[in-house]
Design a binder for these strands. Structure first.
Lengths: 337, 337
DNA sequence: GTGAAAGCGCTAACAA
DNA sequence: TTGTTAGCGCTTTCAC
């Protein structure tokens, strides 16, 4: 690999001149400029990022922490992040935590080592609070996306989860359901608690008492949802919820599959709703009614917020809430009102 | 941010000593070691990655280029890559190209700048050949995964695509189909050509002539496949293929949906197969028969190969072919033989 | 055992 | 307009 010195020698100028040409920040006479450019081409030179980074004190890279990239929720968010970062000359360094605190620790280490200039965290666990707090205390640019952590004081982008829960439950109520279950996420997850709160409010408005077995927390994903639905399927037909709202589309697929495996028809025997509006929700064989979460927009805004903070570290924390949307397809039927 | 100098001063030792305890590569007396460690804790020190990288001439980061992270094929591969890299102390820098040559160019630039020590390319286009060649010429560690580029001379991990095409077509033949269509990928993609070649061989073995309209190339993904299936659906029942093999599960979903939209029953009117065995292929409402591509393993082996080359830049290029597997579900029926 | 100092490649302040 | 040089934070050789 050639260095700026090689270029300087080859072009018969000083390293400073080469640097000036490279960064285009000083006047350089056309002849010398041309010679430098030629040398760069000939020696196939590219400036060393580590040296630049060391000198500048920044890496022009932002970190993106996701809990599980195989979860179809994240790729769109990641893509948005990359698109947006790219526009501003930043690279994106994605880190999968698999929800292992150890991985989160590694990510934070990368931040402290200066490998990344800022961090978007989409999968903050309550357990990560301290770690993130320590970053924030050092004034490290950090934005929380999708998953909220109360009172952290970081920038935050989320969707309107309360409204989503409200919408979902009201939709079921409108269709005439009374025994409506809500499969929430892991206990303590603010996102699922907000959605559950929306659901509860809708139920209360309708004057319906919600017994505890209608709100089941657990992993939002397929397997756990499948199991929970099996539990409902085994209840007596007169007791069993006639409608199930799941925290995620993937979870809703588990519900659908469990219903299928127990011979329950959808939507006749049980109506099902999800959250997210993943690509798969639109398949003809699925046609899942769901609450759309603006994933791409979530990623875009988070990145915007981060880049903005990178430019102005001192500004106050911002909180962005994105609207959600009810997408009616087939798994709840048309109108049983 | 504190530096090694601060630690040295704080602990009353030289920077060299701090470095020794940091890297644990020289004997340091227990007392001094303890003092250094204490200073590190107190000042919350983390070594600067850029400085280390500059000094060492490596970033301990590997790059992973994917064409589209929203394509559910890639996340598993990426995860494998990350898991494997992590074990060896490497971070992974993922880059989405969206199949834009410009993005590939940026990725290569990052390689030349030393931001990454090696590169896994899962989405090499014929158009990228020159770019990758230039990297290889400079002896930059590079492995191709999943997508092959002939005669590049890079390490390569792929699945047995020819065998996959063979398996798929034979399965359809076994079920009694004669008019079997193969929806391949974009023209010139070796991966789809290999699969198509396997298909052709199976057809030839069965003594069936394949008219050109049975092998349609195009984008493998949903929309393009949907359109192509619409074309088949409009053919006379006696002419129309009774079986369609698509290059990808996502594409097969497009086929399935087009069939549904035209009132064609699956598998009675048309049998459908995909490639990949994505998570969604197993849903009860989908039950897609498919050829499983070992995505995680693809990523794992690619990373292994890369790390290996990082350790021994001179070794000869290796070529790994992973077996594929036929997964029989519902979209082809049980046996019409 | 430990420390001083050179140097990785680059930028920019200062000098000419 | 261009060049010389210090120094970013770290590792490691060489000297003691």
């Amino acid at each position: 690999m050639s260095t700026i010195k090689d270029i300087a020698k080859h072009a018969g100028v000083s390293v400073a001149t080469v640097s000036y040409v490279l960064n285009n920040n000083r006047y350089v006479s056309p002849e010398k400029k041309e010679r430098v450019l030629a040398a760069i081409r000939e020696l196939n030179y590219a400036p060393n990022a580590a040296a630049r980074g060391l000198r500048a004190g920044e890496s022009r890279t932002i970190g993106l922490i996701v809990s599980d990239i195989s979860n179809p929720f994240y790729p769109d968010l990641a893509k948005a992040c990359e698109d947006e970062a790219q526009k501003h000359g930043y690279a994106v360094h994605m880190i999968n935590t698999n929800d292992q605190p150890e991985r989160m620790r590694q990510a934070v280490a990368q931040a402290r080592e200066g490998k990344i200039d800022g961090l978007i965290v989409t999968s903050a666990l309550e357990a990560d609070r301290e770690l993130l707090q320590s970053l924030l205390a050092r004034n490290f640019p950090l934005v929380l996306a999708h998953r909220r952590l109360e009172a952290l004081g970081a920038d935050l982008v989320e969707s309107d989860n309360f409204e989503g829960g409200l919408m979902a439950a009201r939709h079921m109520l409108r269709l005439g359901h009374r025994r409506i279950a809500f499969m929430s996420g892991v206990a303590g997850s603010p996102i699922s608690e907000l959605r559950a709160a929306g659901y509860r409010q809708a139920m209360e408005e309708a004057g319906i008492d919600v017994p505890p077995e209608w709100v089941l927390s657990g992993e939002a994903r397929y397997a756990a949802s499948y199991e929970r639905m099996l539990g409902y399927a085994d209840m007596a037909p007169g007791e069993r919820p006639t409608a199930v709202i799941n925290m995620s589309d993937i979870g809703a697929m588990g519900v659908l599959d469990a219903a299928a495996d127990r011979g329950l028809r959808v939507p006749e025997d049980v109506a099902v709703m999800g959250f997210d509006d993943l690509f798969l929700a639109a398949f003809r064989s699925v046609r899942l009614t769901t609450v759309r979460i603006p994933r791409y927009e979530l990623g875009r805004r988070a990145t915007e917020l981060l880049l903005d903070r990178l430019a102005d570290a001192g500004r106050e924390a911002r909180h962005v809430v994105l609207p959600v949307e009810l997408i009616v397809r087939g798994t709840c039927g048309g109108g049983r009102a």
